[in-house]
Design a protein around this nucleic acid. Structure first.
Lengths: 254, 254
DNA sequence: CTTATGAGTTTGTCCGACAAAGCTAGATTT
DNA sequence: AAATCTAGCTTTGTCGGACAAACTCATAAG
């Protein structure tokens, strides 16, 4: 195919990219720890020997990637990428790829079941307290679809947290961000929808408390099936997640 | 808590952020479709009424987010975010959060099982051809851990693709990117490791062809358990994914 | 019809500048 | 002496202009 390589490929990445890569490398391999300062733009200018505009473009790249942020006084520092922010990007990608609600439902079924299994096995007292608190608040707003939907999303986040598996936590988040905004429509559109939702959460919490995995899985399945039936009343599962629908998932980012 | 709000919060986001947000919004809600041009920097300068440096910083943000890219002639255009690129960022986040191999293993078990179930149900002839092709190539390099590990990763990507579920495809990718680089070490360190791996893939492909879900799940479990046993010979599952380990996952990005 | 050429665009980078906001430390007041 | 104020220094966000390299496109030359 290729002729014998006499020279190595020349690195032609633009300077701002190299700046970003250099800083990123230091953070990834741990030489700069989260929370530690990166230095001022002027210092970076001197260290890299490029113009401040170039440094700033590199900084934007890292900032968007969640690797660095500016503290209260706008000074640069390394930080731990927030799942939430990354998940938003992923949700965005899923929308642009026009995934269907069926795909979303199927994947969520898998991920939520895994999540509850982990929670049943490993939930701490603190986790259970948080879930119970969420449940109590939910019970008070059964008639308010908007608030209830938000609490539902939170409940599932807490369950994922209780699974003590951060990979799972991260993996379920993008789907959940697209999945749960519809909850409001569904709970609002189905009589008894709110009550059924809270009932399911109650059984889930009970299952976690009793370390009863079978019950946890069963009620997760029912809970999601409820969502599915509700959704099918207002739309087709094979419809793709709409662009306009993004408005919801979007407002939440603020 | 707060006093009655007399005025709404003033928007103080920096200009480059607003530029990025404005373009992003147009893409997300579909007014600019993937592949369509955004315009030159000069045009954006005129439209937004800000300096070119400011526009460029905004562009960097979107570029890193995968929403826009430059075509062959470096002109800006909207594009579909690539799973692969996003997954790399997630993997990076997982490393910085120091997730353990146990978390990785548990999540992967769930995701790969779901993946194979989907593949058994919905794999197309084309999917099966790709898997068979991968298997044939794997069989030829049983003795070469480096190449075999790469083909193993590809096999699982193909299986996720065969599941026809893009949400799942996306969800499994970050974990896989961290999970599979160790395959080389394991296959290289365990006698018969390569042969067992290829054998598992063969059974998986058979299961998909026969639409035999039970067999598919069984062999996925075995396959991953093999990995786990191999891993435990060289390290502890409770060790966190190391920073230095990133070198592998990192080089692959190029 | 293909190739070469050359003008015009566009990007990547650099330089210098300035207002606004934050920080620091000396000066002032109680 | 402790608290407060003030003025200067730093840093960021934005701007304007500039230029070389790479690319586009249309026209001229073979």
């Amino acid at each position: 195919m290729a002729a014998t390589p006499l020279f190595r490929r020349i690195d032609v990445a633009p300077a701002y990219q190299k700046v970003a890569d250099a800083i990123e490398r230091e953070i990834i391999n741990g030489r700069i720890k989260p929370g530690e300062p990166i230095g001022t733009e002027q210092q970076l200018v001197e260290q890299f020997g490029v113009n401040r505009s170039t440094v700033r473009e590199g900084i934007r790249v890292l900032e968007e990637g969640g690797l660095i942020r500016r503290d209260s006084s706008r000074r640069l520092q390394a930080c731990l990428p927030r799942y939430n922010k990354l998940a938003t990007r992923l949700s965005r990608a899923l929308i642009l790829h026009e995934v269907t609600f069926r795909e979303l439902f199927e994947a969520s079924m898998t991920l939520e079941v895994a999540s509850v299994e982990g929670a049943v096995e490993r939930a701490t007292d603190e986790n259970i307290r948080e879930l119970a608190d969420n449940l109590a608040r939910s019970a008070e707003v059964v008639g308010n679809p908007a608030v209830l939907a938000e609490l539902d999303a939170e409940f599932h986040v807490l369950m994922a947290k209780a699974s003590q598996n951060r990979v799972l936590q991260l993996a379920r988040e993008p789907a959940a961000q697209l999945f749960f905004p519809t909850t409001e429509m569904i709970v609002g559109g189905v009589p008894e929808g709110g009550a059924r939702l809270v009932e399911a959460h109650r059984h889930l919490l009970e299952a976690i408390k009793r370390r009863d995995k079978a019950a946890g899985v069963l009620w997760t399945r029912r809970h999601l099936q409820d969502w599915r039936r509700g959704f099918e009343k207002i739309a087709s599962l094979d419809r793709s997640v709409e662009h306009t629908y993004m408005e919801h998932a979007y407002a939440a980012r603020q």
